[in-house]
Amino acid sequence: MIRSSEDIIIRTVSRVLVPFIQLFALYVIAHGHYSPGGGFQGGVILGASLVLLLITYGPKETRRHISEKSVTVFSSLGVLIYSGIGVICLLLLGNYLDYGKLSGILHVAPAEARALGILGIEIGVGFTVMAIMFSIFFDISSGGKPPEDEKE
């Protein structure tokens, strides 16, 4: 199904918009403390920007920006960041995911340490969600055919 789009307007506009969409997604992740949003929403928006690239430029061009291997690495990396923060808390003799204990290595007040812990796991969630949303769309739209056939 996916091949690069012919329409010049769509191609150019998506090319110009993608950096801004991605920056907005990062903004949503980073400002989850103060405004609506967070890792999940930001990750979905990041994934959507990759999907936009995929449907306008086709798999071959998109693979130059993010390859299948890096998708898998990112999706694992995100959850590993999340659970890794939990394990660090375990090693600091706290309970699992007890970010208050992070204040010992970050040298800030426990409440601030919790805020930083929240930021950390939001980033992890963002990575995973981005990679997985892209990967699900890629699999569904290529629909069980090996990618070679799709490359025109």
């Binding site: 291997k69 898998t72 690495v73 999706s75 694992s76 959850v79 590993l80 659970s83 939990g86 394990v87 375990l90 309970n95 699992y96």
Partner: peptide, 23 residues
């Protein structure tokens, strides 16, 4: 005293690494 959570977390973390090992 951490054993209850390790029951779940160990397979979870191992599962996240499995695709990387498979590559």
């Amino acid at each position: 005293e951490q054993a209850p959570v390790l029951i779940v977390v160990i397979p979870l973390i191992f599962a996240f690494i499995t695709p990387l090992i498979g590559w």
